[in-house]
Amino acid sequence: MRSVRVLKAVEDIRNSFLSYPLWLSLGWQDVKQRYRRSALGPFWITLSLGVTVVMMGVLYAKLFKQDIRFYLPYLATGMVIWSLISTMINESATVFIQAEGIIKQIPMPFGIHVLRMIWRNVIIFFHNMLVVLAVMVFFRVNPGWNIFLFPFAVFLIVLNGYGVGILLGILGTRFRDIVQIVASIVQILFFVTPVMWTASSIKNKIWIIQSNPLFHVFNIARNGLLGGAIPWHSWGVVLLMTVLGWGLAFRMLVRYRARIAYWL
């Protein structure tokens, strides 16, 4: 019986990726639906992030006594990556609950609902990237060859999103308190991760910061956009995290895949 369940979980994951026409459309539809009948459409996301980054950048550069030419690009990249990661984590907990209508009518790989959620956040991410692009051009930030590492960093973030989506999705469906717990944890993560502040401003006890896996995610993504020495150890940590996350997600999927519909 176990081997059947393993096989079904493998097929679920494989077929979810193969059903790309479906999740690409659904994810795109989600974004369109949110901004339908508004003149700017999804560029509202770009605009609101742009305003936030400029306002906060000017203020916090003063507060943290940082050079604005360094701090604004740093903050812009941080905010864009943060909004991708935090929304994905938050939406993971409700990913199957949101799809209840479909799940209870049409059987399809559960991964499709996760990929739909990821795709809609990737679309928003690309809209947000315009802010980063503008800031980088304005301050003449040259990432050098590191820019070629950036797509891989985003790919790893998204790949982690799939694992987290399955994992938190299943947990959130079974235990409805997970949604609130996750929301609180994400809020705390915002403050303990160098999104707004720089890790270099902390002189000692650096290991506390380094033990936060998100620190390394930001490290590799920012490095791709802002340049500098390649943080290979962070790449290692993120890769390890991806493997562990997928392993855990796979185990959950094997065990509880057939129960998800029952819990809805």
């Binding site: 026409p21 479906l22 539809q29 339908r36 009948r37 209508g101 399809m108």
Partner: peptide, 20 residues
């Protein structure tokens, strides 16, 4: 199922078709 009321009838045909 899967009907998006903000989308056009045509878009809904595609959505529903893909869902099936």
């Amino acid at each position: 199922i899967g009907m998006d009321f903000e989308a056009s009838g045509l878009e809904n045909i595609y959505l529903r078709g893909l869902l099936m």
